[in-house]
C-alpha cells in the first residue's frame, strides 16, 4: 500500500460525506421550511401578509393569537377541547383494551385462541373507510351524529394496537410470572392490572402517543359525523376554514389557526421524539 492510494481514499470519503450531508441538510430544510413559513406568517398582520414575502417573524403574534382564539366562525377553543376529549379518551381505551385482548390470547389456552389471533391479524389492514357507509347510516338512524363518544368507543377494537401489544407481551412476559401471581393469591383481573400493566408501561406509552396523534389528526369520520359547531374537532374546523370565502379572511389569523391545530402534537413530539421514533420501528416491523 502506498500513501497515494490512502490519500485518494480519504479524499473520496471526504467528498461522499460532503454530498451526503448536503442532501440531508436539504431534506431537513424542506421539512422545516413550510412550517417555518407558517410560523412567520402567523406573526404578521393581514396587511403585512399582502405586502410581500417574509422570512422572519414580525410582532403581531399575540394579536393574531387573540383574534384566532376569539374568532366568531371558527371556535378553536371548543374545537381543541373536543379534540382533546376524543384523543385522550381514545388513547386510554385503545391501549388498555388492546393490552387486555392481547393478554387474553397470549396467556390463556382456549379453544379458539389461535383462530381469534389470526382473525384479528386478518382484519388489521381493512381500512376504516370501508365500514364508513354503514357506520354513517347507523349514526343517522339512531341520531348519534355530533356525539363525541361515537368517535371514542370504536377505538376499543384496534387490531394494529393489539398486534403491537401481543408482540410486546410475547417478548417480555414469561407465563411463569402470571402463575407466580396466581399462587400469590391474585385473581385474574388483578394480575392483569397490577402485574401485567406495569410491565407493559413502555408499550402502553408508545401506543398512547400514536393513538393520541392519530385521533387528533383524524379528519374523515369526524367530518362526516360532526356538523354542530359546538361539537367539531380541530381537523373538521380546518376543513371548514378551507371552504370559507378567503377574500374576507384575515390571513394572519388563518396561519395562527393552523399553528394552533398542530401545536399540541408538535409539543408532544419535541418532548418525546426519541421514544416516538423508537416506537415507529418496534410497532410496524415484526421483531
Amino acid at each position: 500500500m502506498n500513501s497515494n492510494a490512502n490519500r485518494n481514499a480519504k479524499i473520496k470519503l471526504f467528498i461522499s460525506r460532503f454530498v451526503v450531508y448536503a442532501i440531508l441538510i436539504f431534506l431537513a430544510f424542506l421539512c422545516l421550511f413550510f412550517f417555518w413559513l407558517m410560523f412567520v406568517n402567523s406573526t404578521r398582520s393581514n396587511a403585512q401578509l399582502q405586502s410581500g414575502f417574509a422570512l422572519f417573524p414580525k410582532e403581531n403574534f399575540l394579536k393574531n393569537f387573540y383574534n384566532a382564539w376569539h374568532d366568531g366562525t371558527i371556535d378553536i377553543p371548543t374545537g381543541m377541547k373536543n379534540s382533546f376529549i376524543v384523543a385522550i379518551c381514545s388513547a386510554l381505551l385503545t391501549t388498555y383494551f388492546s393490552a387486555l385482548t392481547a393478554y387474553g390470547t397470549y396467556v390463556y389456552n382456549f379453544r379458539f385462541k389461535k383462530a381469534v389471533h389470526l382473525f384479528i391479524l386478518a382484519i388489521m389492514m381493512i381500512p376504516s373507510q370501508v365500514s364508513a357507509v354503514g357506520f354513517i347510516q347507523l349514526a343517522f338512524k339512531f341520531h348519534l351524529t355530533n356525539k363525541l363518544w361515537l368517535l371514542i368507543v370504536p377505538s376499543i377494537a384496534a387490531p394494529a394496537v393489539y398486534f403491537y401489544m401481543r408482540q410486546y407481551l410475547q417478548a417480555t412476559l414469561p407465563l411463569e410470572m402470571v402463575e407466580a401471581a396466581r399462587i400469590d393469591g391474585s385473581n385474574e383481573f388483578r394480575i392483569f392490572n397490577q402485574i401485567v400493566l406495569p410491565i407493559m408501561k413502555p408499550a402502553m406509552a408508545v401506543q398512547m402517543i400514536f393513538s393520541f396523534v392519530g385521533s387528533w389528526n383524524n379528519y374523515f369520520m369526524p367530518s362526516l359525523l360532526l356538523n354542530d359547531a359546538k361539537k367539531k374537532t380541530v381537523p373538521v374546523m380546518i376543513g371548514t376554514l378551507r371552504s370559507a370565502d378567503f377574500t374576507k379572511f384575515d390571513m394572519g389569523k388563518v396561519y395562527m389557526l393552523m399553528l394552533m391545530a398542530i401545536l399540541p402534537v408538535m409539543v408532544i413530539y419535541i418532548i418525546l421524539s426519541k421514544s416516538i421514533i423508537k416506537g415507529v420501528t418496534s410497532g410496524s416491523v415484526k421483531g
Binding site: 381537523p235 378551507r242 390571513m251 393552523m258 391545530a261 398542530i262 416516538i276
Partner: peptide, 13 residues
C-alpha cells in the same frame, strides 16, 4: 405527525 388537513391547508395558503 402533522395533521394532514392542516398541512394541506397550509399548502393551499
Amino acid at each position: 405527525l402533522i395533521m394532514a388537513s392542516a398541512f394541506s391547508m397550509l399548502f393551499f395558503a
